[in-house]
């Protein structure tokens, strides 16, 4: 989704999995779910929440927290799947809410697992 591969480079790091929706360490379903979560993040989140200029989500979180917690979602160890789901389904400030035709319930679970796992292994 991002134009020139500006995503934060993150491995899936399955050995560290402990998110509620990805409990089965190194299992095929967990890998599949995290891979799907990465796709969802890339498609829907990375265009506002990556590093670099022109990223309103990162800009807003930096202005709000001044680096503590970090402005990049993939470095946020304090985010729970429930909190991620809340913001996806309710929006905040200029970020709108996302419908199930955009991010399905299963995709939201995968997205949350991906963010949580990636942040913990950052």
């Amino acid at each position: 989704m991002t134009m020139r591969g500006r995503l934060i480079a993150t491995g899936l790091a399955l050995a560290a999995v402990s998110a509620p929706h990805a409990q089965e360490q190194s299992s095929a379903p967990a890998q599949t779910q995290l891979a799907r979560g990465q796709q969802v993040f890339t498609y829907w989140c990375a265009t506002c929440h990556s590093a670099g200029p022109g990223m309103p989500g990162t800009q807003a979180l930096q202005a709000k927290y001044h680096g503590n917690p970090p402005a990049l979602l993939l470095q946020r160890t304090d985010l729970t799947p429930q909190l991620i789901a809340y913001f996806v389904r309710n929006g905040v400030s200029v970020m709108p809410l996302f419908r199930k035709t955009e991010i399905s319930a299963a995709d939201l679970d995968a997205l949350a697992a991906y963010i949580v796992v990636t942040a913990r292994t950052h």
Binding site: T47, C48, G54, P56, Q59, A60, A63, S93, V94, M95
Partner: peptide
């Protein structure tokens, strides 16, 4: 891209962001 949303989003110059 989505950079245009920086206009209303929170920033050092805009501490009170809008809701659209």
């Amino acid at each position: 891209n989505l950079a245009t949303f920086s206009i209303g989003a929170r920033s050092a110059f805009n501490p009170n962001p809008t809701n659209g």
